[in-house]
Design a protein around this nucleic acid. Structure first.
Lengths: 199, 199
DNA sequence: GTCTATATCCAGATAGAC
DNA sequence: GTCTATCTGGATATAGAC
């Protein structure tokens, strides 16, 4: 729990674990999530594949740690946002910013997006504890949308569908571009005009 | 080109090819697209893996044939639809039906959806000729939307994002259910109300 | 904790006999 | 067209020495 504590040995261990995770992300971005081998991963950090088992029980455990890390990055981003839009100057404008940042978070690292939001690794899915982090994000979103009068599970679901749909198209059909991501403000307008009565 | 022509030998060859493709779909649905091995695939049709090379040049060619088949299935579905909504009784209602059928097409076979609309197989993408089939679908959609006054590439892009987003959430977070797919009529309303001036 | 060595199993692809 | 045999290379994981 404490982030600075521990013996020097603990410290070293955490450092190596972090290095392995970084390398795993690097290789995943280069070759695809499913194509990372423990041999390559070991080589990347100066270890033999078998030595990685001192840090992760299995490859599935490695994926789970990556998933958790990605969720924590999203949580860190979300922590910077206002939870309620009721008391901001321009709720609609702020909503557009939040939406744009979420889509940017997803498209700036398609590999991370795939791990967090799609099931592309055969036979793997996040552990219940890790998946709970994702559920917490949706709960936050519900509160935020409700603060501007957009209520109900269905509205939340449509919102997520809209943003992940834009992300998905962007990644699959115009990687690196903005053909879909630039539609975000428009999509938010559409959503607000329809679901909210405002001045 | 001719579908019935050919010597008996040709006929047999086409039959076997079709059997292999069927088996490939079956195994993909069972184990995931990326997990199909030529060994298993051969066993499924009573052949050795090496014999499959008499029908497909490589595994990538097999994926390409599957992709083409999926696109043709979608094209066959689209061929039943009215190209223009200008002269149907209730354009909005018809649009809802088309959208619902598209989402149903995608969710009823998530594996096919992944192959057609996502890039989940490391190192593989459809050949240009096969991808052209997908582009043709979008062109059709452009015409259809234009027929009800919804014009512009951006509207087409947002439409596809909306429907694939709904599909994606449905597949990833509520497989077999309808938590997202039931939102289709609502999404179409949202779209029409905003982008179209109608009586 | 890291190594070597190994177990076990799998992949895609090709050569050449029949 | 199909087979056997094989190539070449890969995977995850474990045992046991140091």
């Amino acid at each position: 729990m404490s982030e600075i504590a521990g013996t020097p040995r603990d410290r070293r261990r955490r450092e190596t674990t972090a290095e392995i995770l970084e390398a795993a992300w690097r290789l995943s971005r280069r070759d695809g999530l499913g194509s990372v081998s423990l041999r390559d991963l070991g080589r990347e950090v100066g270890l033999r594949a078998s030595s990685l088992y001192a840090y992760f029980d299995s490859k599935a455990a490695l994926y789970d740690a990556m998933f958790r890390q990605g969720q924590e990055q999203l949580a860190a981003l979300a922590a910077e946002w206002p939870r309620s839009l009721a008391d901001v100057d321009d709720p609609r404008r702020t909503a557009k910013e939040l939406a744009a940042r979420f889509v940017a978070f997803c498209t700036e690292d398609p590999t991370r997006y795939q791990l967090l939001f799609q099931r592309v690794i055969p036979g793997w899915e996040p552990s219940p504890e890790s998946y709970a982090l994702a559920v917490a994000r949706v709960d936050e979103l519900r509160v935020t949308l409700a603060s501007v009068g957009i209520e109900g599970d269905e509205a939340v679901d449509l919102w997520t569908a809209l943003l992940t749909g834009i992300t998905d198209q962007q990644i699959s059909n115009d990687p690196g571009g903005d053909r879909w991501s630039r539609l975000v403000p428009w999509a938010v307008d559409l959503f607000f005009d329809q679901l909210r009565s405002e001045p």
